[in-house]
Nucleic acid binder design. Structure first.
Length: 277
DNA sequence: GTCTGAACCCGTCAGGTGCT
DNA sequence: AGCACCTGACGGGTTCAGAC
């Protein structure tokens, strides 16, 4: 790993526990390299309550063993439901779920990268409504702006404006001169709603390097988004799986009770019969 | 009112798995 | 081999109940 991106403060405003859509017009540009914990290594307490990683291979092997034995929740649950009693729901991508996923996809933010390596998030209420046709640029003169805005934006800052399908307008700002250097396009390789801005007329190696770094960052961003969704799904399935197991336990306990009762009554019947004979 | 620990949720990363 | 997907682990945030 070349250092992870600590984007919790801005890239993930919803990390507070509520999974709301990310705020409109959020500027996403904090990319801080921090040492990441290496997961999947055994952990020990250091005596002060702090967790310290150790290098014992036992933990790794154990985990491998567990991993190699454990199929996905989807598989487990589906097997359970096919082999077991009714009432245990199969995990499948029903239409409701698909609809939900679609709605998530259509509300994801869009990103435009600047040449400074910053990523500006364009939050579109519906990605289908984010069209290049709706894009306009306004170059600020820095005169007569409101106090806060003027202070935050240097002269010549360009505002990218786009109009959404519902008529509402969104603005993002880009440092002077950068917008002119970009073509806004939506490549098919990006997730829905992610707009990539590519500089035109790149010639120098430095620009190429910058561009490849930008592409890498966009790819990572795309992966993170996908993985975020995947993690949500995984947790949902896990919950469902646990619920299913709980239901199964309850059913089996009830069966057990019934069988014990049956055994009791049969025993009594047998004893009674033996006495009379 | 403040502290604290537990429970829960979320995003991210790494590594495994299955498919092409 | 490369890719997409899945899931465990981790760290951080929030909420809430109980102790002081």
């Amino acid at each position: 790993m070349d250092g992870s991106i600590d984007d919790k403060s801005e890239d993930s405003p919803s990390s507070s526990g509520s999974s709301q859509p990310q705020n409109l017009s959020t500027v996403v540009h904090t990319i801080t390299a921090v040492p990441t914990a290496i997961p999947n290594q055994p952990v020990e307490e250091d005596g002060e309550g702090h967790l310290v990683r150790t290098d014992t291979d036992i933990g790794i092997e154990k985990r491998r063993e567990i991993l190699s034995r454990r199929p996905s929740y989807r598989k487990i649950l589906n097997e359970l439901s096919s082999a077991e009693a009714p009432g245990i729901a199969k995990i499948e991508e029903d239409k409701e779920e698909e609809a939900a996923i679609t709605s998530i996809q259509t509300t994801i933010p869009s990103y435009v990268q600047t040449s400074a390596g910053q990523t500006i998030q364009i939050a579109a209420a519906n990605q289908n409504e984010l069209t290049t046709q709706g894009l306009q640029t306004i170059t600020m003169t820095n005169a007569g702006q409101g106090a806060v805005t003027a202070a935050a934006m240097p002269a010549g800052t360009t505002i990218v404006q786009y109009t959404q399908g519902d008529g509402s307008q969104q603005f993002v700002t880009v440092p002077a001169g950068e917008v002119q250097a970009y073509q806004i396009r939506a490549p098919s390789s990006l997730p829905a709603g992610v707009v990539m801005a590519t500089p035109t007329g790149i010639t120098s190696p430095q620009q190429l390097a910058e561009e490849s770094a930008r592409k890498r960052e966009l790819r990572l961003m795309k992966n993170r988004y996908k993985n975020r969704e995947a993690a949500r799904e995984c947790r949902r399935r896990k919950k469902e799986y646990v619920k299913c197991l709980e239901t199964r336990v309850a059913v089996l306990e009830q069966q057990n009770k019934t069988l014990i009762e049956e055994l009791k009554s049969l025993k009594e019947l047998y004893c009674h019969k033996a006495e009379t004979e």
